[in-house]
């Protein structure tokens, strides 16, 4: 899985400026089937702008976005996007929150609810269908948000610091769970994090974005296959990756 042979999602030479200031310059990135690719970079490297372009929320000034080879530049509703906060709608029950992307796509409410409900046990959400988000813990809300993301697109997901709001313990727990889910669902995901350990631990590849304007400075393949050994985060190999990423970020 290199992501280059039959990429699910691809950005080709994407460029974007705001008011004459270049934010992204010739950014190309690809995501293979079932692959987890992590985007790290200094703040201001245009990570979120890149995500807005990949999700179709914004049009790039140059370049294009391909989903399974199809041009989806500037067309939202193709790739699902999970933002920093879980953003579950407080006025909707958990089930309706999860089913929302299906309803927006035009599915009948009853069918959408039934479809979403069928995934609740797999996501460890059974019993929460009729609750409101305010009644769930942070970890459970994150699960519900991931289910919603999955129902939004089974092909590719963009996750913008999905775990940054969680405390360290919950984070560890949800990492394990999340990796398991991604493998089970064979969902490809591109995600942003500020946490280099998280990047190395979770992804198949790490893309380092350098700033002003944002460019892909380097790509690192994290060799050990997933699921990884629990001792991986304390191995010398892990530290080597970390050193390389840190030096790339400082360059």
């Amino acid at each position: 899985m290199t992501g280059r042979d039959h990429p699910v999602l691809q950005a080709e030479g994407v460029a974007k400026s705001y008011g004459g200031r270049k934010i992204l310059e010739n950014v190309s990135i690809s995501l293979g089937p079932g692959e987890l690719v992590c985007l790290v970079g200094v703040s201001g490297a245009g990570k979120t702008t890149l995500f807005n372009i990949l999700s179709g929320l914004e049009r790039p000034d140059g370049g294009r976005v391909l989903l399974n080879g199809r041009d989806v530049t500037g067309a939202p509703g193709q790739v699902s996007y999970m933002l920093q906060r879980d953003l579950l709608l407080p006025h909707k029950k958990v089930l309706d929150n999860a089913a929302l992307p299906l309803v927006i796509r035009g599915m009948k409410k009853r069918e959408a609810r039934a479809e979403a409900a069928s995934y609740f046990p797999r996501f460890g959400l059974e019993g929460t269908e009729d609750k409101y988000p305010a009644q769930l813990s942070g970890g459970m809300r994150q699960r519900a948000a991931l289910l919603r993301t999955f129902l939004g697109s089974r092909e590719a997901a963009l996750l913008d610091e999905p775990f940054s709001a969680l405390d360290a313990l919950t984070k560890r727990e949800i990492h394990q769970w999340y990796l398991g889910m991604m493998d089970q669902l064979r969902m490809a995901a591109l995600f942003i994090t500020h946490d280099i350990d998280e990047a190395i631990l979770l992804s198949d590849r790490v893309c380092v974005l350098s700033g002003r304007p944002g460019r892909v400075a380097a790509e690192l393949t994290i060799r050990p296959p997933r699921p990884r050994d629990p001792s991986f985060p304390v191995s010398g190999e892990f530290l080597d990756y970390k050193k390389r990423i840190l030096s790339l970020l400082e360059a």
Partner: peptide
């Protein structure tokens, strides 16, 4: 942000 999320779903 929630509005953006909905827009990204194609709303």
């Amino acid at each position: 942000a929630a509005a953006d999320l909905l827009r990204s779903m194609g709303a």
